[in-house]
Design a binder for these strands. Sequence first.
DNA 1: CATAGAACCTGTATGC
DNA 2: TGCATACAGGTTCTAT
Length: 307
Amino acid sequence: MPELPEVETIRMGLLPRLVGHRIEDAHVWGTRIARAQTGGPSALENQIKGRRIDALARRGKFLWAELDSGSALVFHLGMSGQLRISEGDAVPRATHEHARMTLDNGQSLSFIDQRTFGRLEVSDYVDTPDGQVAGWGSERRSIPRSAAHIGRDPLDDAFDAGQVVSKIRQSRSPIKNLLLNQELVSGIGNIYADEALFAAGIHGLRMGKNVRRYEVEEVLDDVAEIMKSAIEVGGTSFDALYVNADGDPGYFSRSLAVYGLVGEPCVRCGTPIERVNIQGRSHHYCPTCQPRSKPGTNLRFDRLEQA
DNA sequence: CATAGAACCTGTATGC
DNA sequence: TGCATACAGGTTCTAT
């Protein structure tokens, strides 16, 4: 569920509570959320207990705490994961609470996840191939091994848009899927992919190689701008499943143009928004503003552009 | 290799 | 009211 803006909102909320503090105790109840951890929940507990958190960093939807042991505690929230701060350790275990850490400042950090697609893992580091810092909040030129397979996100200073554009234009997959492919460009999920495709006037089913270079550049610019705006208002909440570290929702849903708005009039032209399934995920789009064909090959679209 | 589809979970909304 | 189906902010494994 959380995409880059939501994960970044959580990171900012956690920053002053975690960085510089020591994890005094840790409990990992969930087996499934520790599935990537060699040795399972108990190994996870042992490797974080007593460690100080030196930094809290993010690339795409991956978040990690840099520990004084020389390893990283990596979080991925999946579809329904939450990281919540509470006062003290006396609070009873919440529904779907799979892990809790108590800190030397008297606060607790809980990992709560209804669907358990999220995970926790202690990982070592590998050098970044480009020699740049790993992502926001990190000063290291190395990234946790378990997050090293994803590409840089559009808000990263070292994001190479030209390379992403080239790769997208070599693929026969629908552009919507390419935007969701975290190895190509990370941080984009179903909401922001659809919003950016609408902003750029591109139908999500168009094959990557059939999208013009300037259009791909446009959609990458748009997704970065939309994500920045979303971060400013704390991300997108539809319900209690996404909240920040203090349990508060974000307000970007008020700014959405297409996501979840099937049947509503397009904000640009009034045509009802439609939805189509693209490889198992819903794609929301305006059939008028986002034609299926390339610019220059569709008379109706060209007339609209000239108007 | 690139691409498509299934699998992994729990909960809610909708229709019959 | 019960039951069946569809769908949900994601990733990863398997099959072609």
